[in-house]
Design a protein around this nucleic acid. Structure first.
Length: 418
RNA sequence: GCCGGGGUGUGGUAGAGGUAUCCCUUGGGACUGUGGAUCCCAAGACCUGGGUUCGAAUCCCAGCUCCGGCCCCA
């Protein structure tokens, strides 16, 4: 009976992993250069951590279970909530701002489709302790520089739910209806939205719709006209936009981004792949400013952060995908003294190079044939002749040239070549 | 949860009622101190379960799963 891979999961072959590690290394490198430190949280948590954040409805989209002592647990469906929990449990006393990044697998019980899996990876960063425009601008600029560094064709959309909420209040939408309206905005359900606003007797419905629809400068102008002359949310957004210009971030202003969730309080942004390589799942990054810590029993500190869909990045990213350079040590004969020398030499070479040594008991010819199939660059051949002269034969497998030289010369030569 | 299209060795394929073709891959040999070629031998597949049939990879049904789309996306 053959056991199949579980639906929505993937195996990663050596070529896949080279590419994924390459991306991961770049992401980590950038985050570190920006002053973020890595943290890691458990793969599973109390299910409650996620239902507090997102409501009971998400239980059906989670890998949720009871352990042997009846704890109600879930495989993490995302990493923001665990990171904020970690902060509340462990990092409250850390100096502010607390800047962290994370990379880990997440699980969702959903129908798999292109660029959507049941096990997937997220890479994200958070600034905990500030929701000032400076913090928001840094987070956006960090996400932006990741896109640039990976040379991904993408567009960044910037919105501000704080402002939208403000506008809704000004227009007379009651506090308890705001969440519902935000969800409709997020879904882009125009007709439904218009209908709801008509029922609620919202006067400035049309203006509101325009602000949401119109992207860019004019939307801000309309918003400014709608609220009182000096509005905190607008000033905040303008300050943020100023800073983004300083950073050189190119973006589209789109106040229709609502990210329906209640805990978002300020700036929100999304990054979409623009080369049409991801089909329906174009979004590769989402982020914003939110207040979650209080929900998990901490102080009401604001945070701002983002999460990249790592697998989507991997699908879009062009890797050079160079195979590692390999050296093959080839003992000519399967005899104790030759093998002993071969192991000694291999051990020395392994301090510097990716080195293979036969484990199949093959003869010289087959070892070289194998070296060829794994695309090795050099073979270090040794047999009785080399042993008596205390030398090795270094063969360049691309040109076919070979020299009988000392091991030290051989290492020096390989160092220059690889 | 819904809609459409698929599942044949590792991968890529042919076969459209009579137990499977070719390429590639892998192991061994020709070939006991020199790889990529050639030849030979070997290994390896009809997604699963039912049904129809003398006989099913092929037709029917169900399931699983993959791909794409909808819904959703913390």
């Amino acid at each position: 009976m053959r056991i199949e891979r579980v639906k929505g999961t993937r195996d990663f072959l050596p070529g896949d992993m080279r590419k994924r590690r390459e991306i991961e290394t770049k992401l980590r490198g950038i985050a570190e250069l920006w002053g973020y430190e890595e943290i890691s949280t458990p793969t599973f948590e109390h299910a409650e951590l996620f239902t507090i954040k997102s409501g009971e409805d998400i239980l059906k989209e989670m890998y949720e279970f009871r352990d042997k002592s009846g704890r109600h647990l879930a495989l993490r469906p995302e990493l923001t909530a665990p990171v904020i929990r970690l902060y509340v449990n462990e990092l409250k006393m850390a100096p502010k701002p607390t800047k962290v990044y994370y990379f880990g697998n997440c699980f969702r019980y959903e129908e798999p489709q292109r660029a959507r899996y049941r096990e997937f990876w997220q890479f994200g960063a958070e600034i905990i302790g500030s929701d000032r425009p400076e913090a928001e601008a840094e987070i956006i600029a960090l996400a932006y520089s990741i896109i640039k560094e990976l040379d991904i064709d993408a567009e960044l959309h910037l919105g501000h739910v704080g402002l939208i909420r403000e506008l809704l209040r000004t227009a007379g939408v009651s506090e308890d209806m705001i969440s519902r309206v935000m969800r409709l905005i997020d879904k882009g359900a125009r007709d439904e939205l218009m209908e709801l606003m008509r029922i609620m007797g919202v006067e400035d419905g049309d203006t509101l719709m325009r602000i949401i629809d119109q992207k860019g400068e004019t939307a801000i102008e309309e918003a400014r006209n709608m609220v009182t002359a000096h509005n905190e949310a607008i000033e905040h957004l303008e300050h943020l936009r100023q800073l983004l210009d300083y950073y050189g971030v190119v973006y589209d202003l789109n106040l229709g981004i609502a990210r329906g969730l209640d805990y978002y309080t300020g700036m929100v942004f999304e990054i979409y792949e623009a080369g049409n390589k991801l089909g329906a799942q174009r979004q590769i990054c989402g982020g914003g400013t939110y207040r979650l810590a209080a929900l998990f029993g901490g102080d009401d500190v604001p945070s701002t952060g983002f999460a990249f869909g790592f697998d989507r990045l991997a699908e879009v990213y062009h890797s050079d995908d160079k195979e590692p350079k390999k050296v093959v040590v080839v003992p000519v004969k399967n005899e104790p003294e030759v093998l002993q020398a071969a192991i000694g030499i291999t051990t020395r070479l392994r301090k510097h190079f990716n080195t293979y040594l036969d484990v199949m008991g093959r003869g010289l010819r087959d070892q070289l044939a194998y070296a060829n199939t794994i695309h090795a660059s050099y073979a270090v051949i040794l047999g009785k002749r080399e042993l008596t002269e205390d030398k090795v034969t270094l063969r360049d497998l691309e040109t076919g040239e070979q020299y009988k030289i000392s091991l030290d010369e051989c290492i020096a030569k390989l160092k220059r070549a690889l």
